[in-house]
């Protein structure tokens, strides 16, 4: 893979319907869609600054609805950093992350040098909360990873999420801002499902 040195690949995992695509779309496009469309798999690219130069941040939005072990393994082995998303309105969605974390651990050997963010999304839906912030924190501590609660809907903590993730990477010095402007060269690389994510 020739572009390996330049691309920085982030993979977003999580159960179906927790808001992976919404988080990624909020971050990449700054929008939130209220439609209900499952994802097959989408990849978004964005140029960021990296070691006083630029590189491509490649975000893979995976499917939460059907896990193909082979595909999951491939995504993990190619990924540099991982965002594990659950919904604070569903305890089950946090449970679903456990096998994924184990899979990351198994393939990467150790997660110490791998940036991982545990994310509790839908923080705006306080009334339906099933997972307390403390529980998310405790899980993150157990996994030795960072933790954050976000809301793609209200744009809470979304940019911070990606900033912190990049800050966790010690091998490169990365930052979201280039020339103070963000969405310069964003594009959809794999436009897997035309009408699904074009807003």
């Amino acid at each position: 893979m020739p572009e390996q040195s330049n691309d920085y690949r982030v993979v977003v995992f999580g159960a179906g319907g927790v808001g992976k695509s919404s988080l990624v779309l909020r971050f990449v496009k700054g929008t939130f869609r209220d439609t209900y469309i499952p994802t097959v798999e989408d990849t978004y690219r964005q140029v960021i600054s990296c070691d006083k130069s630029v590189c491509t941040l490649q975000i893979t939005d995976t499917t939460g609805s059907h896990q193909f072990p082979a595909m999951q393994r491939l995504s993990i082995s190619k990924g540099h950093a991982f965002i594990l998303v659950y919904s604070i309105t569903s305890r089950q969605s946090l449970e679903e992350l456990k096998p994924i974390y184990q899979q990351v651990l198994a393939i990467k050997g150790s997660t110490e040098s791998i940036p991982i963010m545990l994310v509790g999304n839908k923080s705006d839906e306080m009334a339906q909360r099933e997972v307390e912030t403390k529980e998310g924190e405790a899980q993150a501590t157990a996994w030795k990873c960072a933790f954050m609660e976000t809301s793609a809907k209200t744009n809470s903590n979304v940019k911070e999420l990606f900033q912190e993730l990049l800050a966790l990477e010690k091998k490169r010095d990365m930052s979201l801002s280039i020339d103070g402007k963000r969405s310069g060269k964003q594009k959809r690389a794999d436009k897997l499902k035309g009408k699904c994510s074009v807003m």
């Binding site: 469309i37 097959v40 193909f68 082979a70």
Partner: peptide, 24 residues
């Protein structure tokens, strides 16, 4: 939506696993 979440359970290539990208 149904075909996105259920379709892959109805038809898949025999070679899946060795060619994960093809599965995608």
């Amino acid at each position: 939506n149904i075909s996105i979440v259920l379709g892959p359970n109805l038809l898949w290539a025999k070679t899946e696993g060795s060619l994960a990208e093809m599965a995608a």
